[in-house]
Every structure is written in structure tokens, then in C-alpha cells.
Amino acid sequence: MADSFPHGTVHDAPEDLQAAVQASADLSSRWQALTPLGRNEFICWVTDAKQAATRQRRLERMGESLLAGKKRPCCWAGCTHRTDKAPGRWQQAVLIEGRHKRGS
């Protein structure tokens, strides 16, 4: 049987994210209404969590955000795994190279 769950442009939704989305008909319809890029941003944001507790909080927050009409994760610089778009300077410095400035 083919996988009918709508995934992102780069990332496939892991099982825990799929289960969270499919737990509610309203949430599922909102997920399906997202663009593939929007879904990709949520998938990357959730799977980027280093700890299980953080991942769980992000799954819960993703559901709340979708139900509130959000189309992207708040305060997320964006997926650095996309091959169709080069990372911005901020993404390159902070997310990829691990550099950041504190203060001014």
C-alpha cells in the first residue's frame, strides 16, 4: 500500500509526527492544506530536536500552531537541507557553522 500521508519537499514525516497529525481530523485537514514547503519546515523543526522531551514539546506546539492557522514554525530559521535554495548568511553562520554573536 502506498504512503498517502503528505510529506515535505525534502523530509518525510516520521511516524510520531504522522500520528500527532492524524490524531485529529481538524489537524489532519490543516496539515494537508499546507504547501509541501510548509510541511517540510514543520518536519525539519520537529526532527531537529536533540532530546526526546524537546521533540515532544515541538510536536505539541506544531499541533497548536496548525490549529491556530500558522503555516510555518514560529522562530525557525528554516530548513538547511533544501537543495533548491542556498542557506542565507544567518543560517550558514549560526545553524551550519555554529557561530553566533552574543550582545551587540
Results as ranks from 00 to 15, higher is better:
Phe5Gly: 10
Arg30Gly: 04
Thr47Lys: 07
His7Arg: 08
Ser29His: 13
Ala20Met: 14
Ser24Val: 07
Gln18Gly: 02
Thr83Gly: 14
Ser24Lys: 04
Gln51Glu: 08
Gly103Ala: 04
Ala13Ser: 07
Ala33Asp: 14
Pro36Lys: 07
Arg39Trp: 01
Ala86Gln: 12
Asp3Tyr: 09
Ala68Cys: 05
Arg30Ile: 04
Asp84Asn: 09
Leu95Trp: 03
Glu41Val: 00
Gly63Pro: 12
Gln92Ala: 08
Ala93Ser: 10
Leu17Pro: 05
Val94His: 15
Pro14Ala: 10
Leu27Cys: 11
Val10Gln: 07
Trp90Asp: 12
Gly69Glu: 09
Gln22Pro: 00
Phe5Glu: 04
Ala93Ile: 07
Pro14Gln: 01
Thr9Trp: 01
Arg61Asp: 14
Gln91Glu: 08
Glu41Gly: 04
Thr47Phe: 06
Asn40His: 13
Cys75His: 15
Phe5Cys: 01
Gly69Tyr: 02
Val10Glu: 15
Phe5Met: 06
Gly63Arg: 05
Leu17Glu: 10
Leu66Asn: 07
Gly98Ala: 03
Val21Arg: 12
Gln51Asp: 03
Gly8Asp: 04
Gly69His: 03
Ala52His: 09
Glu60Pro: 01
Arg89Glu: 08
Gln18Asp: 00
Thr80Ala: 11
Pro6Ser: 07
Val94Glu: 13
Gln92Cys: 01
Asp16Ile: 00
Ser24His: 10
Trp90Arg: 15
Ala53Gly: 03
Ile43Pro: 02
